Computed example of a mutant assay.
Amino acid sequence: MPETLKLQINFSGGAELLFDKIKKHNIELPSVRKYLPDSKAEKWTIRELLVWIKGNLLKERPELFLQGDSVRPGILVLINDADWELFGELEYELQQNDNIMFISTLHGG
């Protein structure tokens, strides 16, 4: 098993504004045990990924992206171009080279 997990993370629909206006991030995650030693998780899930995103990519106004341990309502999450609801949402175990997209459907007016 590889030492790191390579992913592509994308933000759009205005969500990128919370991430220094950077839409595409190619990341490498260490073993989940190394990054979250108190976690009982054996593999990275979307739940652990959100903790990592908050600590490493999110630059401002976390309340506009996160609510509790999930994304706030109005943020569409796609895993390899399919709705995360098809994969178990927060419990989805991330796979090598997954493409995770966060799209804000909320627009001010």
Rank of each mutant, 00 (worst) to 15 (best):
Pro73Ile: 03
Asn56Pro: 01
Asp81Leu: 11
Gly55Gln: 14
Val51Trp: 12
Gln95Cys: 14
Ile46Lys: 14
Gly88Leu: 04
Trp44Ala: 07
Val51Gln: 15
Thr4Gly: 10
Thr45Asn: 13
Trp52Thr: 00
Gln67Arg: 13
Arg72Phe: 12
Phe87Ala: 08
Ile9Arg: 00
Gly14Tyr: 09
Glu48Phe: 04
Ser12Tyr: 10
Glu85Lys: 10
Leu29Tyr: 12
Ala15Pro: 04
Glu42Val: 12
Ser12Gln: 15
Lys21Tyr: 14
Ser70Pro: 05
Ile100Arg: 01
Glu93Leu: 03
His107Gln: 10
Gln96Val: 07
Glu63Pro: 10
Leu106Phe: 11
Asn56Trp: 01
Leu66Met: 15
Gly74Leu: 08
Tyr35Arg: 14
Asn56Asp: 08
Pro2Ala: 12
Leu78Trp: 01
Glu48Asn: 15
Leu94Tyr: 00
Met1Lys: 05
Leu50Ile: 03
Leu49Pro: 04
Phe65Met: 13
Asn10Gly: 02
Ser12Met: 09
Gly109Asn: 02
Asp98Cys: 01
Leu66Phe: 12
Ile79Ala: 05
Asp81Ser: 13
Lys59Phe: 06
Gly88Lys: 05
Tyr92Arg: 05
Lys6Thr: 09
Lys34Pro: 01
Gln8Tyr: 01
Lys59Ala: 15
His25Cys: 04
Pro62Tyr: 07
Ile9Asp: 03
Leu106Asp: 08
Leu5Pro: 03
Pro73Glu: 06
Ser70Met: 15
Ala82Asn: 12
Gly109Glu: 10
Glu60Ser: 11
Leu64His: 12
Asn26Val: 00
Ile9Val: 04
Asp98Arg: 02
Leu94Pro: 02
Glu63Ala: 14
Gly88His: 01
Gly74Ser: 06
Lys21Met: 15
Glu28Thr: 14
Arg72Ile: 09
Leu64Trp: 13
Ser31Trp: 07
Thr4Lys: 10
Gly109His: 08
Glu16Arg: 09
Lys34Ser: 13
Leu18Thr: 00
Leu58Tyr: 00
Pro30Lys: 13
Val32Tyr: 07
Glu93Met: 01
Asn10Arg: 14
Asn10Ile: 02
